[in-house]
Design a protein around this nucleic acid. Sequence first.
DNA 1: CCAAGACGGTTGCGGGCGCAACTAGTTGTG
DNA 2: CACAACTAGTTGCGCCCGCAACCGTCTTGG
Lengths: 153, 153
Amino acid sequence: MTARSTPEQTLELAAFVPFRLNRLADGVSQHLAVIYRKRFGLDIPQWRVMATVGSKHGCTAQYIAASTRMHKSRVSRAIGELEARALIERASSGEDRRQRQVHLSRSGRRMYSELVPLALEREAALLACLGPERLAGFMVGVETLERFLELED
Amino acid sequence: MTARSTPEQTLELAAFVPFRLNRLADGVSQHLAVIYRKRFGLDIPQWRVMATVGSKHGCTAQYIAASTRMHKSRVSRAIGELEARALIERASSGEDRRQRQVHLSRSGRRMYSELVPLALEREAALLACLGPERLAGFMVGVETLERFLELED
DNA sequence: CCAAGACGGTTGCGGGCGCAACTAGTTGTG
DNA sequence: CACAACTAGTTGCGCCCGCAACCGTCTTGG
């Protein structure tokens, strides 16, 4: 009853979800990276650090690494570059002298307050192409996959 | 009537869709890369070339680049490595002597026929965590975004 | 038919990043 | 207290990849 001459199973990359997800995430990133790079001179690791520190003042490098899922060396370098541009400042923690608390500087806060509305607006413009109900269905899928892969937080 | 003391708009990275999409795509890739790398010794560019050539025999490097959205140099190097492992073969095209038609070798076909079922199975296992209806809703969102960003094909 | 430009594919170069080793500081145990 | 094990963060090394220059091959137009 089953086919004898195995008809050579094939895989169309354009229909393969992992590939499509990669391509989609990449496209979305490109869509946003323009702002970060051209307008503020930030690359993605730097942007992620800015975003994290902007909403979690005084956090540590390891906190940033955990919540952005970037390798600690990448975080360390991004922090170094941002500090060199005086966008963030580091203060030794009194508690544990190994860790350094990261804060936005005055100009860092200024950039952050300019950057965030643009990013949110760009995100909204992207998601607007789905209606509200499609968006909801999409996000349910994203959340379920995140939980399955244990990516949340 | 508008707020006077702007309450400093913030952005939570964990709720920012572009970031979450990147993280998700990355998680999914990791989930699959194990197979490619540990079992077949392929990295992602190589896997994409194998997949493309396996379903489009005799295609050219530029076709691979266009359909995988990889830079042509990345494609060129991946092809070179696969050829060195005798998984693919290149034949000069009679039509245009600049381009070279890429085929799977005998051992390439063997690997392909082993690789594809595993990849599809792994994809299915991943998507199974969404039910059929959640999956449908999720894919509608993915397709809509792809069209919006002009990523299809 | 020849020059100029376009195009397929390759490669040197430099930048970014993961890995692993390292420093400095902390915690736990006898 | 001493010593081992652990943790926060930094950095040298090597790999991967995008960029741009390049080579050989078409193609077009004068």
